Simulated assay, not measured.
Amino acid sequence: MGRVMVLGSLNVDLVTRVERHPQPGETLLGEGLEQLAGGKGANQAVAAAAAGADVLMVGCVGSDAGGTAYVERLRRLNVDVSRIRVVEGEASGHALIAVDDRAENTIIVVPGANGLLDDTEVDAVDLLGPGDVLLLQLEVPLPVVCAAARRASHRGARVVVNTAPYAALPPDVVALADPVVANEHEMVALAESGAEPASLLVTFGANGASWDGTSVPAHSVAAADVFDTTGAGDAFCGALAAALASGADREVALERALAAGADAVRHAGAQRDPAL
């Protein structure tokens, strides 16, 4: 069984609930304020560990209380934190999240230390080899993402790239990913960019997912059971990477990923029991 390395962001999420999302220039009152663990990278690392993978998280936090608490939390969740770098004098990344009565969310991300990943984090990829999986997202500097993807591929590791939040990637990085994971909107942007994935997995929310012709329906979740869609895509990606590292084929990997995504919408926050 291979190892999953997740190179990406760690955010402290500040979450409030609203009846509906405000229009531009409008002020609404929120109900409650929670401080939760988030960031696409750490969300996916926790999901991969929950799915049984041996997970190494690579990223940066600030020298603040939120960053310290986050690293300790990941350690308790069986994520290897030895490659999380503490940046002195910098704030950890934060995300401001509003969740409405339909469980839809809006998110503003303040990168903080997530914007300071550099060659130190790329060098961590040298720990990977054949059978391992490098899982990437786009909430950290794109040059680091691209350099890590290329190095991991050169070392024989499998590279999985989640194109969220969407940004155009060099064609060679898109081509080496197996797979590129995109939702419907990101798939359109990817096609418009002219990049050609050799392996493309598209998620369709409640309609399941398809990976180069292999389609699996979504797990049914009653509307009354949908509490918060924040992080469902990250749960999907983490479980997918764990399945691939275990040697699962496409159909099995999709099934496990969809099950994790369905479970994620039933609880608050991007991670199960996410309080910091």
Score class of each variant (00 low, 15 high):
Glu184Gly: 13
Ala209His: 00
Gly213Gln: 10
Ser220Phe: 09
Ser153Lys: 07
Gly269Cys: 09
Pro179Ala: 05
Ala95Asn: 11
Cys146Asp: 03
Met1His: 07
Val6Ser: 01
Ala270Val: 10
Asp132Ser: 10
Phe236Ala: 12
Val71Cys: 05
Ala209Leu: 07
Gly39Asp: 01
Pro179Val: 05
Glu19Tyr: 09
Cys237Gln: 14
Met57Asn: 02
Ala241Glu: 08
Ala235Phe: 03
Leu7Ala: 00
Ser82Asn: 09
Leu135Lys: 03
Arg250Ile: 05
Val46Cys: 04
Asn78Met: 11
Arg266Cys: 10
Glu184Gln: 15
Glu121Arg: 04
Met187His: 13
Cys146Thr: 06
Ser215Arg: 14
Met187Leu: 10
His94Ala: 14
Asp118Lys: 05
Asp212Asn: 12
Val265Tyr: 01
Ala103Phe: 08
Asp123Ser: 06
Ala42Met: 12
Tyr166His: 04
His154Asp: 03
Gly208Asn: 01
Val55Pro: 02
Ala47Val: 08
Val173Ala: 05
Ala168Glu: 15
Asp64Leu: 08
Gly67Ile: 03
Gly52Thr: 11
Gly112Phe: 03
Gly2Val: 08
His185Asp: 11
Ala148Arg: 00
Met5His: 07
Arg150Tyr: 03
Arg83Val: 10
Ser193Met: 11
Arg20Gln: 08
Asp80Phe: 13
Arg155Thr: 00
Asp228Leu: 09
Glu251Phe: 15
Glu196Ala: 15
Ser153Asp: 08
Arg250Pro: 02
Asp234Asn: 15
Cys146Val: 06
Ala241Leu: 14
Leu142Gly: 04
Gly8His: 11
Asn114Ala: 12
Ala98Glu: 13
Cys60Trp: 02
Asp100Ile: 02
Tyr166Met: 07
Asn43Ser: 14
Val61Gly: 00
Gly39Glu: 00
Ala177Arg: 01
Asn114Ile: 04
Arg266Gln: 12
Arg17Thr: 14
Val122Ser: 01
Ala47Thr: 04
Ala191Val: 07
Pro170Trp: 07
Ala195Ser: 09
Pro130Cys: 02
Leu74Lys: 01
Pro143Gly: 10
Ala222Asn: 14
Glu121Gln: 11
Met57Tyr: 06
Gly205Lys: 04
Gly261Arg: 08
Gly30Ile: 01
Met1Trp: 06
Ala91Pro: 12
Leu240Asn: 09
Ala103Tyr: 10
Leu201Ser: 00
Ala152Asn: 07
Ala177His: 07
Pro217Arg: 14
Thr27Lys: 06
Glu192Val: 09
Gly59Phe: 12
Pro179Tyr: 08
Leu134Tyr: 01
Ala50Ile: 15
Gly247Pro: 09
Arg250Trp: 05
Val87Ala: 03
Ala248Glu: 12
Glu88Thr: 10
Leu10Phe: 05
His219Ser: 12
